[in-house]
Structure formats: structure tokens, C-alpha cells
């Protein structure tokens, strides 16, 4: 265990964990748009910026992204000093210029007292803040169907050649994880469309209810060694079948 001070309170943190984890455990609310437990920290949004210092640093202070800074013995962390708040305001101001229509950004900026950007709004703006969560989760899951393409102003998240991605299985994890809900998809219970690719949904043989996409099931069967039969019916039918099987066994016991 490592001893650190967060906002004047002495707390213990696990060795090797990042500051953000220790701060969140203390129920201190600091914004972080590009952070998710399932993927490695990335430090793209810069909103989790905190002020750090140590007693032996002679009053020297530094501002770091807490999601990327590992805990150290004797570290003194302040999450809401005027400078940190000013930094966060500047970052949110810039986000508001690049994504002026995103409700998530607008709400977060309003919490910090910014309702209008002081910069010039980007003309063809999108809600994408290029945090890379979608590409990171896609890589982590082993599909790598989407990636960042282009540089500078033209940088965006897209499938290869901006065509329907061959490696995408339509699991919708990228759409779920997107902090600004920018990634769009449609799902009508029969067909699912994301990144311009159409997927057919598997249907329960008994109830007819949709489960996951055919491609995703095929991936799990091939790479995760899940038997093919498991995907024939949905969870409700699985439960009913289990109840009937266990019921049959119990009945044999009763008759005997």
C-alpha cells in the first residue's frame, strides 16, 4: 500500500494503480471522458487533470492527468484548486468549440460555468472528441475494425477505406462506450447497422426474440470455444429448458 494525500485527507492506495482510481474511490467527482475500466488509460481528454506536489519538492507543483499518473509514496494531490479548475474550464471551452452540439459536453461545461465557447466554433463540427475509446475497446476485444484516420483537422474515427468494416461483428461496444454518444447505429430487432455494415441478428428458435449478431456468435464459437448450440435459443428459453430438465430429474426422484 502507498500513502497519499487527496484534498488534505490521508488515504491508502494500491501499488501501481493510477491516481484517478484512488481519487474515484474517495468519491471525489472529477470529470474524465476518455476513461473506461475495460481499457488502458490514454490521457486524451485531459479533463482529469489534478495538481500534485510533495513535501520535499519545496513548493514546486505540477499538473498531471490523474488517469495516467501512478500513485507514489507521499504524493499530495489536490483535485479542485483554482488553477486546476481554470485548466479544466479552458479544456471544456475548447471542447465546446469543436463539439458545440454535444449534450454531454454542454452539460459538463455548464457545470463549470461555461455556456458559450470563447473560441470560434468549428464550422463542420461533430460530437466526436477523438478520445479513442471506441478504437481502444475494439482493439481490446480483438476485432480492430475501426481506427483513427487522417491527421490534424481531418482526423476522424472510421473503418478502413471508409467502407463497411470486414472485421466488425456488430457488438455495439463502441457505441456504448462513446462518451458523447456520437457513434450511431440502428437496430430494428431483425437487422442491425453500424459503420455502414448490415448484420443479421440471431433469433431464438423458441420465442423468436433476437439475441446477438450472427457474426459475433461465429466469432465466439471460433475463438472462445463456445459450443454452437448455446446460441440457438435465448436466455429466457435456456432458463425454461433448465427448469424442465431439473424438473424431470426431480420427478424421477419422486416416482422412485
Amino acid at each position: 500500500m502507498v500513502n497519499i494525500t487527496i484534498n488534505g485527507k490521508l488515504v491508502q492506495a494500491y501499488e501501481g494503480e493510477m491516481l484517478l482510481a484512488a481519487i474515484r474511490r474517495e468519491n471525489i467527482d472529477i470529470p474524465a471522458l476518455c476513461h473506461h475500466e475495460a481499457v488502458e488509460p490514454y490521457g486524451a481528454c485531459r479533463l482529469c487533470m489534478v495538481e500534485i506536489t510533495k513535501n520535499e519538492w519545496d513548493g514546486w507543483k505540477n499538473h498531471v492527468t490523474s488517469c495516467l499518473y501512478p500513485v507514489e509514496e507521499g504524493l499530495i494531490v489536490n483535485t479542485h484548486t483554482p488553477t486546476v479548475i481554470e485548466l479544466r474550464k479552458t479544456i471544456l471551452d475548447l471542447f465546446l468549440a469543436s463539439s458545440p452540439h454535444s449534450t454531454v459536453i454542454k452539460k459538463l461545461a455548464a457545470e463549470y460555468g461555461i455556456t458559450r465557447t470563447s473560441y470560434e466554433e468549428v464550422p463542420d463540427s461533430t460530437d466526436c472528441i477523438l478520445c479513442g475509446l471506441c478504437t481502444r475497446i475494439c482493439d481490446k476485444m480483438g476485432f480492430s475494425a475501426i481506427s483513427a484516420v487522417g491527421r490534424g483537422h481531418g482526423k476522424e474515427i472510421a473503418p478502413p477505406l471508409k467502407e463497411p468494416p470486414p472485421d466488425c461483428v456488430g457488438c455495439l461496444s463502441c457505441a456504448y462506450i462513446c462518451p458523447t454518444h456520437y457513434i450511431q447505429f440502428t437496430d430494428n430487432g431483425k437487422e442491425r447497422t453500424i459503420w455502414g455494415k448490415k448484420f443479421k441478428l440471431l433469433r431464438c428458435e423458441k420465442t423468436g426474440l433476437p439475441t446477438i449478431t450472427e457474426e459475433f456468435a461465429a466469432y465466439l464459437i471460433k475463438h472462445r470455444e463456445i459450443p454452437e448450440d448455446y446460441f440457438k435459443i435465448n436466455d429466457l428459453s435456456h432458463r425454461r429448458e433448465l427448469a424442465l430438465k431439473m424438473g424431470q430429474i426431480t420427478q424421477w426422484g419422486r416416482e422412485a
Binding site: Y230, N234, D235
Partner: peptide, 10 residues
């Protein structure tokens, strides 16, 4: 990440 793999696989 709500991919529903476990729901379908159990």
C-alpha cells in the same frame, strides 16, 4: 461494455 456475449452464451 454491454456487448451481450455472456447473455447469449450462458
Amino acid at each position: 461494455v454491454r456487448c451481450m456475449a455472456c447473455v447469449a452464451a450462458c
